[in-house]
């Protein structure tokens, strides 16, 4: 496998994508906006939650479900601090696994299906770029921008959150911490690669972009399960859990890549040209 050839496919696709604002804008703007509004919301919710009778009072019950080591960390904090701490550092952490999936979904769905729709695929398939190089190139063009967006979102989230919570936590900066570093630079990329690999595989098999995107939405379900797992206290993303998940997803990524290349059939792709 020649990485140079995969990077060539990446550069070509990226050149095309960056000239298409309809694709670029939602990829960049939505995650970054969420990264700004989420910490604002987080610092606003606890003050609402302390008002008796509001639905948000239910958060206390959720905190009770957290494991002991998490609860120990909360000892000595005010109710407002506990609320913000738990929500900012734990409850919303898996959300940053969704950002790369959201950002990559459009590009990955378009990877082969878009070329079929625009009838550019035949000349590409006729080049001496191998199946593995093509598949990797198409994965990279979804992966690299989505990870850049995720990293920027993380930076924005941390900055806005620290600015807002600085006074609440008496001058302590809570983000970034080890868990978040592992999450953003370890788990998010491996989860994203698995999702991108599957979406690119789907994109190669179906006729058009819309079909690919509709099917790829299903891939969000396991990640949403992690989000709800964390929100209900069923799973807590501590360093051990995150590292174990990274290891698991590395294996899944390799398996998906190998399967994707194996199932990559130029002939089948050509037969699906609209």
């Amino acid at each position: 496998m020649r990485i140079k050839k995969a990077m060539l496919v990446f550069r070509k696709d990226w050149r095309e994508i960056k000239r298409n604002w309809q694709v670029i804008l939602p990829i960049i703007v939505v995650p970054i906006m969420i990264s700004v509004f989420l910490p604002i919301l987080l610092t606003a919710i606890p003050s609402l939650a302390t008002t008796p009778g509001t639905p948000l009072s239910g958060f206390e019950a959720m905190i009770q479900n957290l494991p002991n080591h998490v609860q120990e960390q909360l000892a000595g904090m005010t109710e407002q601090q506990v609320m913000i701490y738990i929500m900012a550092l734990y409850f919303f952490a898996p959300f940053f696994l969704i950002i790369p999936l959201m950002a990559s979904s459009v590009i990955a769905s378009d990877s082969f299906a878009g070329e079929k729709e625009r009838k550019t695929i035949e000349a590409l398939l006729a080049t001496p770029i191998s199946d593995g190089e093509l598949f990797l190139g198409k994965m990279l063009v979804s992966f690299i921008p989505s990870m850049i967006v995720t990293s920027i979102s993380f930076l924005v989230y941390s900055t806005v959150f620290d600015l807002l919570s600085f006074s609440i936590f008496n001058g302590t900066l809570l983000l970034p911490n080890l868990d978040w570093f592992l999450l953003i630079f370890g788990l998010a990329p491996t989860v994203a690669l698995a999702s991108i690999g599957l979406t690119v595989m789907i994109s190669a098999k179906v006729k058009g972009f819309k079909e690919a995107q509709q099917i790829s939405v299903i891939l969000l379900i396991p990640i949403l399960a992690l989000v709800f797992g964390q929100a209900t206290g069923a799973i807590i993303f501590g360093p051990i859990v995150i590292t174990a998940l990274i290891g698991l997803f590395v294996i899944i990524d390799l398996a998906i890549f190998r399967t994707g290349v194996k199932l990559f059939k130029r002939e089948e792709i050509l037969s699906k040209i609209a």
Binding site: K5, L8, K12, R15, E16, K119, T120, L124, P128
Partner: peptide, 24 residues
């Protein structure tokens, strides 16, 4: 190919450049 199979968002030069490198 039966269709020109050109990347319409790329320039003529960029299209040529991509395929030149793809062919080594």
């Amino acid at each position: 190919t039966e269709n020109p199979s050109l990347y319409e968002r790329l320039t003529a030069y960029e299209n040529m450049d991509f395929f030149a490198e793809a062919y080594g």
